[in-house]
Design a protein around this nucleic acid. Structure first.
Lengths: 137, 137
DNA sequence: TCTATTGCTCCAGAAGCTATAGGTTTGAGG
DNA sequence: CCTCAAACCTATAGCTTCTGGAGCAATAGA
């Protein structure tokens, strides 16, 4: 049996976050000690590690709920799990593409050397005037 | 004079968001009509366009506040504006790097072809077992 | 047994909006 | 001038994913 602190240390998920996940229905309400403290079994530790890993990868709470529900039915085809992960990959790729554009634009903006006054600062002017952008966003 | 709806259409910032920005102190409380509706001048439109653009670039509300305050003092050196933009560029680059790692890992995970059952699905196993990862994250 | 640490619940806040409810004002057509 | 739909108002709550604090109870090691 693990206390909530044990679980936290072993998974790297902070204590209030574990309680939050319980509230959100990601993990079941565990047994309690006589003094009303949470007591977890090994299986909960594994479930929490799964959640942690999926969150690290940026999956939403809802996606994780779906994946956890799926994993309760090992006999079903796994196309659904594949779909969730693939969709997530697509959104990650989109984010990368958008950030690349920002990077380019910020590079241009930052070309200002800081050796003059705000009145003619490229940063300020670039932000004020959208038409200076090379790509639309 | 523009109504809040005009301002919204011209800048692409939604009406509740404009009111929110007013509350947050990004834009000043404007004059009101006899019937208590907001009436904006052209300068407010430009200010809001600036904010919109900076938000599109991912700058935080606080950074934008700083930049707006700076732009009120055109005689000052612009090193500060430069610093804000540079810092933001650095965080954008970090985000890109992290997302690239995720992309790689998700690519490996998604290699599952969906033609079997959840019990031996690579997606589920990969999420359950952190040690399968190639890079630590 | 004492006490430091850990745990409990409940509540508020962070960021940046978005939505809803319930009402008022505006402006264009008749 | 009148009407009526569209636009506007305020206030408040909700979203997401946690994080932190207050005030008190339980546990574990010396």
């Amino acid at each position: 049996m693990y206390s909530i602190g044990d679980l936290s240390r072993r998974t790297g998920v902070k204590i209030p976050t574990i309680r939050y996940y319980e509230q959100m229905g990601l993990i079941a309400a565990p047994e309690r000690s006589e003094g009303n403290q949470r007591r977890y079994e090994r299986s909960e530790l594994e479930r929490l590690a799964f959640i942690r890993h999926a969150r690290d990868l940026g999956l939403s709470i809802d996606s994780i709920k779906d994946l956890l529900a799926l994993s309760q039915h090992p006999e079903r085809p796994c196309g659904e799990a594949d779909r969730i992960a693939s969709e997530h990959l697509a959104t990650v790729r989109e984010k990368i593409a958008r950030l690349r554009k920002l990077e380019q634009e910020l590079e241009r903006i930052v070309a200002c050397d800081g050796n003059h006054t705000v009145g003619d600062c490229y940063v300020i002017r670039a932000l004020a005037d959208h038409s200076m952008c090379e790509s639309e966003h």
